[in-house]
Simulated scan of single mutants.
Amino acid sequence: MSPSRRVSLVLFLSLLAGSLLPSRAAPLTSELRCQCIELFSGRIPIKRFARLNLYPAGPHCANTEVIATTTEGREVCLDPEAPWVKVAIKRILEKNNENNQL
């Protein structure tokens, strides 16, 4: 399986899984479109993230979308340009890289 197909498959499965949880994101319908209607402007401590999904811009949406699922199960759309969101993504990627090297 080519890397681009693998990324597409992971993105599709993430979108499908995300549509099953109640959220402030737009519901996924038969057409692909942006999931985030509004962006959360506050700050969430990284330890409260249960999951962080990053959806790059593409034919379904012109915006990069970052959707965080909190430990309470709430989904929140974050501003991908906010400095604290960039730091959170970097830390989570670094942590995942450390775990993968073990």
Rank of each mutant, 00 (worst) to 15 (best):
M1H: 10
M1K: 13
S2A: 12
S2N: 06
S4G: 04
S4R: 15
S4H: 14
R5Q: 09
R5W: 11
R5K: 10
R6W: 04
R6M: 07
V7K: 12
S8F: 03
L9G: 00
V10W: 05
V10S: 01
L11Q: 07
L13A: 14
L13V: 06
S14T: 13
L16K: 14
L16P: 06
L16I: 12
G18K: 02
G18S: 12
S19M: 05
L20S: 10
L20R: 03
L21A: 14
L21T: 09
P22L: 06
P22D: 10
P22A: 04
S23Q: 09
R24V: 02
R24E: 12
A25H: 07
A26N: 12
P27L: 12
L28I: 08
L28C: 01
T29H: 08
S30N: 13
E31L: 08
L32P: 02
L32K: 05
L32W: 07
C34A: 12
Q35G: 15
Q35P: 06
Q35E: 13
Q35A: 12
Q35N: 09
C36P: 00
C36D: 03
I37V: 13
I37D: 10
E38C: 03
L39Y: 09
F40R: 06
F40G: 02
S41L: 12
G42V: 02
R43S: 13
R43P: 01
I44M: 02
I44S: 02
I44V: 05
K47E: 15
K47F: 07
R48C: 06
R48V: 03
F49I: 01
A50H: 07
A50K: 10
R51M: 11
L54F: 04
Y55K: 03
A57K: 09
H60E: 14
H60Q: 14
C61K: 03
C61V: 03
C61T: 01
N63T: 05
N63C: 11
T64R: 15
E65D: 02
I67E: 15
I67C: 05
T70I: 03
E72A: 10
E72K: 09
G73M: 07
E75I: 01
E75D: 12
V76Y: 11
V76N: 05
V76R: 15
C77Q: 02
L78A: 09
D79H: 08
D79I: 07
D79Q: 02
E81A: 15
A82R: 11
P83I: 01
W84D: 13
W84R: 07
K86F: 03
K86W: 01
K86S: 06
A88N: 05
I89N: 08
K90L: 14
I92C: 10
I92N: 04
L93P: 00
K95F: 06
N96R: 15
N96S: 14
N97H: 13
E98K: 09
N99V: 10
N100Y: 08
N100A: 15
N100T: 10
L102Y: 09
